[in-house]
Design a protein around this nucleic acid. Sequence first.
DNA 1: ACGATTATTGCGTTCTT
DNA 2: AAGAAAACAATAATCGT
Length: 303
Amino acid sequence: MHDQVYETWFDEDVQANDQCPECSGHVVTNVRETVCEDCGLVLSDGVVDRGPEWRSFEDESRRRTGGPVTAARHDKGLSTEIGYLADGGHGVAGDKRRRLGRLRAQHRRATFESKQDRNLAHGLGEVRRIASALGLSTSVRDQACRLFRSAQSEGLLPGRSIEAMASAAVYGACRCNGLARTMDEVDRYSRGEFSGLANAYGVLNRELGLPTKPMTPQEYIPRLASALEVSDSVRRRGRGLAVRAERSGVATGKHPAGFAGACLVVAGDEAGDPVVVSRVAEAADACTSTIRAHRERVRGLLA
DNA sequence: ACGATTATTGCGTTCTT
DNA sequence: AAGAAAACAATAATCGT
């Protein structure tokens, strides 16, 4: 019934950081919808393109035909060079010598450039795949791509996996735009067997000096609220609690997502509309004991 | 589901060399 | 100053209720 209205807004491309048409609040984009952070108005729900599916499939098949591309293998088995013994040792002279020299230079240049290219192509492919899987807007995705390019040109790649840096770029782009994503969530789509995301992001953030500010619990409220399908009043109350908690300092040093979840639990209890802790834990990428601990902190705030 | 207890992880500090 | 190590806090895991 709201479809028409939503369609219109979506066509106008309401995105993160825009103003909510209804309450002039702050609009954020999360996994599968664009919502107003203040009133929770859903601006695009289920309209998010199904692009990620064929895109990631495409990437997958490209990976297979292209062969395994990992930083380790690049340097290890695949690179070759033309040695100097061939001519140096046996006194190859004149034309042949010069030709060999030119060949050597070309070969070196070619392999070097193709390595860079492959790394970049692979990395950007991963960035795009992860960004799509998270349902990020194209502008955020492009920003992530730029971050990855910077990371490569700044020489941040050697010693780290492409996958790790790709997911770090995506996470970094989210952080720069104030989008509430946990590292876990981004990591979920990374292909590496061990994450390295935290490390890669650490370097990326430090070396590039990303303009990020710490996430606050209330920024996670809208996402969790819609994931848990709590009532509007509970969400509002939870948001209020999150603000109070953050101002009073009890939330500092805590993972904001888990803390936001705890706020929703307390809000649900108050409203006589219990929010199940285990579900919150799942939605917030935390465990139940953490949510419980935070819940007590929030309650202590009210007492 | 809850509360309590224990294990693990991560991080900033401090002590060394 | 760079690195190792003991120390602390947060989170996870596990228990009995």
